[in-house]
């Protein structure tokens, strides 16, 4: 039995235990940030498709899902799974994040999903290279895959390694993210059909969101004005 994402209990017990991490010199951090910059998004507004393949211990079949997403630095993230179910994660910030149904039914995000969104996924989309250089040991494998090993004790309890690779050809860019947890379970997310937008500002982002998810009730409005959708 592992103690995945379970450090919160430590708060009950008024303790915090530090874990060892290698000291990286400034130069090393700069190198890490350079590596990350090469694969992280360079624009602030983009959309795309994803396919996800998950392996869960105890479930004999792989769990495959597909969908699309829209991300804006100003507005937030819509992560829409279309198959085998239609539902979305709407992430505005660490306090406003929901699971949304097509009909606009919202449920607050909890547990691991919320943690992963707050601490890894949205930061990755946001191109927060400084954060990843600080929290992870970043190295490049021979196949040009960038490997991120968590350095903080908290992340080490749940996460083993993240592999990120980027492929580019004339027509499109694809990013592959493989997350391996401490139990050896892999989640592979392949992002492609990435379309980058040159507009700026929240209003334009909201309009683009509405274009993409016109058939979904309130999703983009939740991103624009999350306080109006108090589900707590």
């Amino acid at each position: 039995m592992k103690k995945t994402y379970f450090t919160w209990l430590g708060l009950f017990c008024l303790l915090a235990v530090a874990d060892a991490s290698p000291v990286l010199a400034k130069d090393s951090k700069n190198t890490e940030e350079t590596l990350l910059s090469a694969i992280f998004p360079s624009r602030c507004n983009f959309s795309g498709h994803f396919s996800q393949r998950k392996a869960v211990e105890g479930v004999s079949v792989p769990l495959n899902s597909t969908g699309d997403f829209f991300y804006s630095c100003d507005l937030g993230l819509v992560w829409h799974t279309s198959k085998p179910f239609s539902e979305a994660v709407l992430y505005v910030n660490s306090t406003n994040n929901f699971k949304a149904e097509d009909d606009g039914t919202l449920t607050p995000l909890t547990g691991i999903t919320r943690y992963i969104m707050s601490n890894i996924f949205v930061r990755l989309l946001n191109g927060d290279t400084a954060y990843f250089a600080e929290e992870f040991s970043v190295t490049e494998a021979t196949d040009k895959t960038v490997r991120l090993h968590p350095e903080s004790g908290m992340l080490q309890k749940g996460l083993d390694v993240i592999h990120i690779s980027k492929t580019e050809d004339d027509s499109q860019t694809a990013v592959s993210i493989k997350v391996t947890d401490v139990k050896g379970q892999d989640t592979l997310v392949l992002i492609d059909h990435i379309q980058q937008y040159s507009f700026t500002g929240k209003r334009s982002a909201y309009e683009q969101c509405n274009n993409l998810y016109a058939d979904k009730t309130n999703w983009c409005q939740v991103l624009r004005s999350p306080s109006r959708f108090d589900v707590f």
């Binding site: 869960v56 479930v59 969104m117 947890d181 379970q185």
Partner: peptide, 9 residues
Amino acid sequence: YQLGEGVRL
């Protein structure tokens, strides 16, 4: 199927 979910304590 959710991102990050599926892990059991």
